[in-house]
Design a binder for these strands. Structure first.
Lengths: 222, 222
DNA sequence: TCTGCGCCTTGATGCGGATCAAGGCTGCCG
DNA sequence: CGGCAGCCTTGATCCGCATCAAGGCGCAGA
């Protein structure tokens, strides 16, 4: 990550675009950076001195085993905070899923501040934990079909638009998030479309035709 | 959970036994409770007003799907803190793996206190997150053999004794933690013993014969 | 417009772990 | 000491997903 070459500004920024969460205040004094598709934002084992927020685009956190097996920890879309999934060093790398604009703040600023700001960091960490735990359920006990259905449902729950949902990531990323292969993901998507649960308008955009059916297949426990 | 029937004391307790962590201070004003094997400590969806610490025994957090599939979120041994894996309500239930003594503290006490104490809560949450993320890697991309090897290695890393390690939980609990069946866990344990990696002295106690071999099979990425 | 490449889909086959089934071991209680 | 119940192991078979293989589709650049 080259800190100097592409930062655009250091300033008091206006409130970020999708300010529907509690953490907006944390990012007032921050640097905005742009990353190209597949560019690394930080590496596995790198020092975790910074905390990040997606302004525009999408980010994935990944871990690669010695033999090349890859697991995606999570995806982050506009408004999401990432990078606090660590102790002193990052345990996952972070990469831009597509061209993205990211706000960056020093972690030490956040950690040292008491009261409200510190509590917001804790809240954000707790949300991360909840998502990781849902992910554990998914990978431990759900079938391929249930995983893909859960994934589409989660994505639609996050996106504001109730009609049409965008998939910012490719099939391989979905597979590596769900602990499946690209072929299985593709087959499940075809199957969901064939059974009139969802309908793909484009390769990375779908409508939910039967929300109740999707929820049933997703088999959420909470 | 019956708060009244089995608490033993409300007092300033002496430092807990294995005080090798930073969180000891949090539990000075706490209630000690005992739970029988398989007794519920708190339920899924229950309010998360309390935080817990294992004094003696072992605890599991579980989530059960509508059709009975069960996933164990994590195990907690003497000295471990649990119960902060939640927003307003618990997303997993907690149960005693065997007869256990648990210290309990009001979460609100912890959350409202600023400075050091609040930060310790955050640290504990972050450790939980790290463990959940390792669990995701395991369930998403490791084979049955790698999962069992990782499990035994983790347990031995946690236990002080380098020679002999106790398994506090039964095979079914291990299976539900690793996203496998009891039969597969049993087969992998037999296989590890046959290949002289570990050796079982009793059904729930083993020695690591070949630590390097175990580490290789575990395939840890960090 | 044509061509090539990246990404996706679909089909055929194989394998790892689930499921089904049958005992064995151990500890408890008569 | 014998019988029973819970837990664990082992074997046989099955199935869901991985792997291997072969195109299809769409976009970018000549």
């Amino acid at each position: 990550m080259a800190l100097a070459h592409d930062y655009t500004d250091v300033q008091y920024l206006p409130a970020p675009p999708k300010a529907a969460d509690t953490a907006t205040g944390l990012f007032r004094l921050s640097v905005s950076m742009t990353f190209a598709k597949d560019e690394e934002i930080y590496g596995q084992d790198e020092d975790a001195d910074l905390i990040y927020r997606v302004l525009d685009g999408a980010v994935r956190t990944t871990r690669v085993m010695a033999d090349g097996r890859r697991q995606i920890g999570d995806f982050y879309l506009a408004g999401d905070i990432f990078g606090l999934e660590a102790g002193p060093a990052h345990r996952f790398a972070a990469e831009a899923v597509r061209d993205s604009v990211i706000l960056v703040i020093k972690a030490s600023t956040l950690r040292s501040s008491g009261g409200d700001v510190g509590r917001l960091g804790w809240e954000a960490t707790r949300r991360e934990l909840e998502r990781a735990q849902e992910h554990v359920i998914m990978l431990g006990r759900k079938t391929a079909c249930e995983r893909v259905a859960s994934f589409l449902k989660d994505l639609s729950d996050k996106s504001g638009d109730l009609r049409v949902v965008d998939l910012p990531m490719g099939r391989q990323d979905i597979a590596d998030y769900l602990g499946l292969t690209i072929e299985t993901v593709s087959r499940m998507l075809s199957q969901l479309q064939a059974s009139r649960i969802v309908s793909f308008c484009a390769i990375r955009q779908f409508r939910i035709v039967n929300p109740a059916g999707l929820a049933r297949l997703a088999n959420q426990t909470l």
